[in-house]
Computed example of a mutant assay.
Amino acid sequence: MENKKPRVAIQGIRASFHEEAAFKYFGTDIETVECNSFKQTFEALKNKQADYVVMAIENSIAGSILPNYSLLMSYNFPIVGEVYLPIQLHFLTLPGVKFEDIKYVISHPIALRQCVDFIDEYPQLKVVESNDTAACAKRIREEQLTDTAAIANSLAAKLYELDVMERRIESNKKNFTRFLIFTHHENAKNQQSNKASLCFQVTNEVGSLAKVLNILAEQEVNMSKIQSMPVLGKRNEYNFYVDIEWNKAEQYDKAIRQILNYTQNFNILGEYQRNIED
Protein backbone atom coordinates (compact mmCIF):
# COMPACT_ATOMS: atom_id res chain seq x y z
CA MET A 1 0.00 0.00 0.00
CA GLU A 2 2.86 2.37 0.84
CA ASN A 3 4.14 2.42 -2.75
CA LYS A 4 0.82 3.22 -4.37
CA LYS A 5 0.37 6.64 -5.93
CA PRO A 6 -1.86 8.91 -3.85
CA ARG A 7 -5.32 9.23 -5.41
CA VAL A 8 -6.28 12.90 -5.31
CA ALA A 9 -9.86 14.05 -5.98
CA ILE A 10 -10.27 17.40 -7.72
CA GLN A 11 -13.23 19.41 -8.96
CA GLY A 12 -12.83 19.64 -12.72
CA ILE A 13 -10.71 17.74 -15.20
CA ARG A 14 -7.00 17.10 -15.75
CA ALA A 15 -4.91 20.26 -16.25
CA SER A 16 -7.37 22.40 -14.28
CA PHE A 17 -6.05 24.72 -11.57
CA HIS A 18 -7.07 22.10 -9.01
CA GLU A 19 -4.75 19.55 -10.62
CA GLU A 20 -2.00 22.17 -10.80
CA ALA A 21 -2.47 22.78 -7.05
CA ALA A 22 -2.37 19.00 -6.42
CA PHE A 23 0.92 18.74 -8.37
CA LYS A 24 2.36 21.62 -6.39
CA TYR A 25 1.48 19.96 -3.08
CA PHE A 26 2.07 16.25 -3.82
CA GLY A 27 4.37 16.33 -6.87
CA THR A 28 3.28 15.02 -10.26
CA ASP A 29 3.36 11.30 -9.36
CA ILE A 30 -0.31 11.12 -8.36
CA GLU A 31 -3.52 9.60 -9.69
CA THR A 32 -6.01 12.40 -10.36
CA VAL A 33 -9.66 11.59 -9.65
CA GLU A 34 -11.81 13.93 -11.76
CA CYS A 35 -15.11 15.06 -10.17
CA ASN A 36 -17.94 17.24 -11.49
CA SER A 37 -18.51 19.12 -8.22
CA PHE A 38 -16.85 19.87 -4.88
CA LYS A 39 -19.45 17.65 -3.19
CA GLN A 40 -18.39 14.76 -5.43
CA THR A 41 -14.76 15.15 -4.31
CA PHE A 42 -15.80 14.58 -0.69
CA GLU A 43 -18.03 11.67 -1.73
CA ALA A 44 -15.00 10.12 -3.47
CA LEU A 45 -13.02 10.50 -0.23
CA LYS A 46 -15.90 9.11 1.85
CA ASN A 47 -16.29 6.08 -0.46
CA LYS A 48 -12.51 5.42 -0.40
CA GLN A 49 -12.24 6.16 -4.15
CA ALA A 50 -9.68 8.84 -3.26
CA ASP A 51 -7.03 9.29 -0.55
CA TYR A 52 -7.06 13.10 -0.60
CA VAL A 53 -9.17 16.04 -1.74
CA VAL A 54 -7.74 19.32 -3.01
CA MET A 55 -10.32 22.11 -2.73
CA ALA A 56 -10.13 25.85 -3.42
CA ILE A 57 -11.25 27.90 -0.41
CA GLU A 58 -10.39 31.50 -1.29
CA ASN A 59 -9.02 33.72 -4.02
CA SER A 60 -7.08 36.94 -3.49
CA ILE A 61 -9.43 38.78 -5.87
CA ALA A 62 -12.78 36.94 -5.70
CA GLY A 63 -12.62 36.32 -1.91
CA SER A 64 -13.85 33.28 0.06
CA ILE A 65 -15.69 30.44 -1.66
CA LEU A 66 -18.48 30.28 0.92
CA PRO A 67 -20.30 27.08 -0.20
CA ASN A 68 -17.07 25.16 0.37
CA TYR A 69 -17.07 26.12 4.06
CA SER A 70 -20.48 24.44 4.42
CA LEU A 71 -19.15 21.34 2.65
CA LEU A 72 -16.08 20.96 4.83
CA MET A 73 -18.27 21.21 7.93
CA SER A 74 -20.83 18.66 6.74
CA TYR A 75 -18.20 16.06 5.75
CA ASN A 76 -15.83 16.80 8.64
CA PHE A 77 -12.64 15.41 7.07
CA PRO A 78 -9.47 16.85 8.63
CA ILE A 79 -7.45 19.53 6.85
CA VAL A 80 -3.84 18.31 6.60
CA GLY A 81 -2.31 21.01 4.42
CA GLU A 82 -2.73 24.06 2.25
CA VAL A 83 -1.19 25.35 -0.94
CA TYR A 84 -1.18 28.80 -2.57
CA LEU A 85 -1.22 28.78 -6.35
CA PRO A 86 -0.54 31.85 -8.50
CA ILE A 87 -3.33 32.06 -11.09
CA GLN A 88 -1.61 32.61 -14.43
CA LEU A 89 -3.85 32.68 -17.49
CA HIS A 90 -2.87 32.31 -21.13
CA PHE A 91 -4.58 32.70 -24.53
CA LEU A 92 -4.46 29.22 -26.10
CA THR A 93 -5.15 28.13 -29.69
CA LEU A 94 -4.56 25.21 -32.01
CA PRO A 95 -1.06 25.32 -33.54
CA GLY A 96 -0.90 27.36 -36.74
CA VAL A 97 -3.99 29.48 -36.02
CA LYS A 98 -3.56 33.23 -36.64
CA PHE A 99 -4.97 35.86 -34.28
CA GLU A 100 -7.14 37.39 -37.01
CA ASP A 101 -8.89 33.98 -37.49
CA ILE A 102 -10.18 33.94 -33.91
CA LYS A 103 -13.85 34.81 -33.40
CA TYR A 104 -14.57 33.28 -29.99
CA VAL A 105 -12.84 33.13 -26.63
CA ILE A 106 -14.06 30.51 -24.15
CA SER A 107 -13.32 30.00 -20.44
CA HIS A 108 -14.76 29.84 -16.94
CA PRO A 109 -16.66 33.06 -16.01
CA ILE A 110 -14.18 33.93 -13.22
CA ALA A 111 -11.18 33.43 -15.54
CA LEU A 112 -12.86 35.63 -18.16
CA ARG A 113 -13.45 38.35 -15.54
CA GLN A 114 -9.81 38.14 -14.49
CA CYS A 115 -8.72 38.84 -18.10
CA VAL A 116 -11.20 41.62 -18.83
CA ASP A 117 -8.53 44.22 -19.71
CA PHE A 118 -7.06 41.96 -22.38
CA ILE A 119 -10.47 40.95 -23.78
CA ASP A 120 -11.63 44.60 -23.95
CA GLU A 121 -8.76 45.38 -26.33
CA TYR A 122 -10.33 43.07 -28.93
CA PRO A 123 -14.05 43.93 -29.23
CA GLN A 124 -14.36 41.58 -32.25
CA LEU A 125 -13.97 38.54 -29.92
CA LYS A 126 -17.23 36.96 -28.77
CA VAL A 127 -16.94 35.79 -25.16
CA VAL A 128 -18.44 32.37 -24.34
CA GLU A 129 -18.68 31.20 -20.73
CA SER A 130 -18.04 27.56 -19.88
CA ASN A 131 -17.76 25.44 -16.72
CA ASP A 132 -14.02 24.71 -16.62
CA THR A 133 -10.86 26.34 -18.01
CA ALA A 134 -9.20 23.01 -18.81
CA ALA A 135 -12.36 21.63 -20.44
CA CYS A 136 -12.29 24.60 -22.84
CA ALA A 137 -8.73 23.77 -23.87
CA LYS A 138 -9.66 20.10 -24.28
CA ARG A 139 -12.66 21.02 -26.45
CA ILE A 140 -10.51 23.09 -28.84
CA ARG A 141 -8.20 20.11 -29.30
CA GLU A 142 -10.96 17.49 -29.67
CA GLU A 143 -13.18 19.54 -31.99
CA GLN A 144 -10.22 21.13 -33.84
CA LEU A 145 -11.69 24.62 -33.39
CA THR A 146 -9.62 26.97 -35.56
CA ASP A 147 -11.79 30.04 -34.82
CA THR A 148 -11.71 29.74 -30.99
CA ALA A 149 -9.21 30.50 -28.23
CA ALA A 150 -9.36 29.22 -24.66
CA ILE A 151 -8.18 31.05 -21.55
CA ALA A 152 -6.47 28.48 -19.33
CA ASN A 153 -3.17 27.59 -17.61
CA SER A 154 0.09 26.31 -19.11
CA LEU A 155 -0.70 22.79 -17.85
CA ALA A 156 -3.75 22.72 -20.18
CA ALA A 157 -1.64 24.03 -23.08
CA LYS A 158 0.83 21.21 -22.56
CA LEU A 159 -1.68 18.40 -22.01
CA TYR A 160 -3.94 19.34 -24.94
CA GLU A 161 -1.04 20.40 -27.21
CA LEU A 162 -2.15 23.98 -27.78
CA ASP A 163 -0.04 27.02 -28.60
CA VAL A 164 0.29 29.84 -26.08
CA MET A 165 -0.51 32.78 -28.37
CA GLU A 166 -0.52 35.38 -25.56
CA ARG A 167 1.06 34.71 -22.15
CA ARG A 168 -0.02 36.06 -18.73
CA ILE A 169 -3.16 37.92 -19.85
CA GLU A 170 -4.66 38.14 -16.34
CA SER A 171 -5.30 41.76 -15.29
CA ASN A 172 -3.88 41.35 -11.78
CA LYS A 173 -0.49 39.62 -11.68
CA LYS A 174 -0.71 39.04 -7.92
CA ASN A 175 -3.72 36.72 -8.14
CA PHE A 176 -3.48 33.67 -5.82
CA THR A 177 -5.92 30.92 -4.93
CA ARG A 178 -5.58 29.08 -1.63
CA PHE A 179 -6.41 25.37 -1.67
CA LEU A 180 -6.96 23.09 1.33
CA ILE A 181 -5.88 19.44 1.44
CA PHE A 182 -8.22 16.93 3.13
CA THR A 183 -7.84 13.24 3.92
CA HIS A 184 -9.35 10.40 6.00
CA HIS A 185 -8.95 10.65 9.77
CA GLU A 186 -6.66 7.59 9.82
CA ASN A 187 -4.40 9.25 7.19
CA ALA A 188 -3.98 12.43 9.23
CA LYS A 189 -0.67 11.69 10.92
CA ASN A 190 0.58 13.84 13.75
CA GLN A 191 2.83 16.30 11.97
CA GLN A 192 4.79 19.34 13.04
CA SER A 193 2.17 22.05 12.63
CA ASN A 194 2.25 25.84 12.89
CA LYS A 195 -1.21 26.63 11.56
CA ALA A 196 -4.76 25.52 12.41
CA SER A 197 -8.27 26.08 11.11
CA LEU A 198 -10.94 26.38 13.78
CA CYS A 199 -14.71 26.69 13.77
CA PHE A 200 -16.83 27.82 16.71
CA GLN A 201 -19.83 29.84 17.87
CA VAL A 202 -19.75 32.43 20.63
CA THR A 203 -22.46 33.32 23.12
CA ASN A 204 -24.66 36.31 22.36
CA GLU A 205 -23.16 38.30 25.22
CA VAL A 206 -21.47 41.61 24.51
CA GLY A 207 -17.77 41.18 23.85
CA SER A 208 -17.69 37.37 23.68
CA LEU A 209 -15.88 37.34 20.30
CA ALA A 210 -13.52 40.07 21.52
CA LYS A 211 -12.56 37.83 24.46
CA VAL A 212 -11.52 35.07 22.03
CA LEU A 213 -9.49 37.50 19.94
CA ASN A 214 -7.82 38.93 23.04
CA ILE A 215 -6.76 35.44 24.15
CA LEU A 216 -5.05 34.90 20.79
CA ALA A 217 -3.29 38.25 21.07
CA GLU A 218 -2.14 37.56 24.65
CA GLN A 219 -0.65 34.20 23.61
CA GLU A 220 1.02 35.78 20.55
CA VAL A 221 -1.01 33.57 18.21
CA ASN A 222 -1.60 35.31 14.89
CA MET A 223 -5.10 35.21 13.38
CA SER A 224 -4.59 35.18 9.60
CA LYS A 225 -8.28 34.89 8.66
CA ILE A 226 -11.77 35.16 10.14
CA GLN A 227 -14.93 34.30 8.23
CA SER A 228 -18.47 34.26 9.62
CA MET A 229 -21.40 32.29 8.23
CA PRO A 230 -24.98 32.05 9.55
CA VAL A 231 -25.87 28.80 11.31
CA LEU A 232 -28.54 27.16 9.15
CA GLY A 233 -32.03 27.69 10.55
CA LYS A 234 -30.85 29.69 13.59
CA ARG A 235 -31.55 33.41 13.68
CA ASN A 236 -28.66 35.64 14.79
CA GLU A 237 -26.31 32.68 15.26
CA TYR A 238 -23.04 32.45 13.37
CA ASN A 239 -20.22 30.02 12.85
CA PHE A 240 -16.82 31.70 12.92
CA TYR A 241 -14.10 30.10 10.81
CA VAL A 242 -10.68 31.22 12.02
CA ASP A 243 -7.19 30.44 10.75
CA ILE A 244 -4.41 30.91 13.29
CA GLU A 245 -0.61 30.62 13.15
CA TRP A 246 1.97 30.31 15.91
CA ASN A 247 5.69 29.96 16.51
CA LYS A 248 5.58 27.95 19.74
CA ALA A 249 3.24 24.98 20.27
CA GLU A 250 2.69 25.87 23.94
CA GLN A 251 1.25 29.27 22.94
CA TYR A 252 -1.26 27.50 20.70
CA ASP A 253 -2.15 24.87 23.33
CA LYS A 254 -2.70 27.53 26.01
CA ALA A 255 -4.81 29.69 23.69
CA ILE A 256 -7.08 26.75 22.76
CA ARG A 257 -7.62 25.79 26.43
CA GLN A 258 -8.68 29.35 27.27
CA ILE A 259 -10.85 29.84 24.16
CA LEU A 260 -12.93 26.79 25.10
CA ASN A 261 -14.37 28.80 28.01
CA TYR A 262 -15.92 31.37 25.69
CA THR A 263 -17.12 29.30 22.73
CA GLN A 264 -19.72 26.69 21.80
CA ASN A 265 -19.51 23.84 19.26
CA PHE A 266 -15.76 24.33 19.13
CA ASN A 267 -14.12 22.29 16.37
CA ILE A 268 -10.48 22.03 15.22
CA LEU A 269 -10.86 21.47 11.46
CA GLY A 270 -7.18 20.67 11.03
CA GLU A 271 -3.62 21.35 12.19
CA TYR A 272 -0.99 21.60 9.45
CA GLN A 273 2.11 23.29 8.08
CA ARG A 274 1.65 26.84 6.88
CA ASN A 275 2.30 27.27 3.15
CA ILE A 276 3.86 30.52 1.98
CA GLU A 277 2.65 32.34 -1.12
CA ASP A 278 5.26 32.33 -3.90
Score class of each variant (00 low, 15 high):
residue 234 K to S: 13
residue 82 E to Y: 07
residue 152 A to D: 08
residue 226 I to W: 12
residue 152 A to N: 01
residue 229 M to Q: 14
residue 243 D to N: 15
residue 143 E to Y: 05
residue 46 K to F: 00
residue 48 K to P: 05
residue 197 S to V: 00
residue 212 V to S: 04
residue 103 K to S: 11
residue 204 N to M: 10
residue 159 L to N: 10
residue 67 P to S: 02
residue 209 L to F: 13
residue 75 Y to C: 00
residue 21 A to H: 01
residue 249 A to S: 14
residue 252 Y to C: 12
residue 275 N to S: 13
residue 18 H to D: 15
residue 19 E to Q: 14
residue 275 N to K: 12
residue 210 A to P: 09
residue 189 K to N: 07
residue 263 T to N: 00
residue 54 V to E: 06
residue 44 A to C: 08
residue 111 A to P: 03
residue 217 A to V: 10
residue 25 Y to D: 00
residue 135 A to S: 14
residue 46 K to L: 04
residue 108 H to L: 11
residue 240 F to D: 07
residue 129 E to F: 05
residue 24 K to F: 02
residue 67 P to D: 06
residue 95 P to E: 15
residue 211 K to A: 05
residue 173 K to R: 15
residue 255 A to G: 09
residue 64 S to T: 12
residue 87 I to N: 04
residue 114 Q to A: 10
residue 133 T to W: 01
residue 14 R to C: 10
residue 172 N to D: 13
residue 266 F to I: 03
residue 276 I to S: 14
residue 227 Q to H: 15
residue 249 A to N: 08
residue 48 K to I: 00
residue 123 P to G: 12
residue 231 V to E: 01
residue 180 L to G: 01
residue 20 E to C: 10
residue 194 N to T: 12
residue 5 K to L: 10
residue 266 F to T: 02
residue 173 K to V: 09
residue 62 A to K: 09
residue 155 L to S: 14
residue 109 P to H: 04
residue 229 M to K: 04
residue 17 F to Y: 12
residue 258 Q to V: 05
residue 257 R to C: 06
residue 33 V to K: 00
residue 16 S to K: 05
residue 110 I to P: 00
residue 218 E to V: 13
residue 149 A to T: 00
residue 210 A to C: 09
residue 97 V to I: 09
residue 201 Q to N: 06
residue 272 Y to I: 08
residue 21 A to C: 09
residue 110 I to S: 10
residue 135 A to K: 08
residue 151 I to N: 02
residue 88 Q to I: 15
residue 11 Q to C: 14
residue 41 T to P: 00
residue 2 E to N: 14
residue 134 A to D: 00
residue 107 S to V: 05
residue 195 K to L: 03
residue 110 I to M: 08
residue 233 G to E: 13
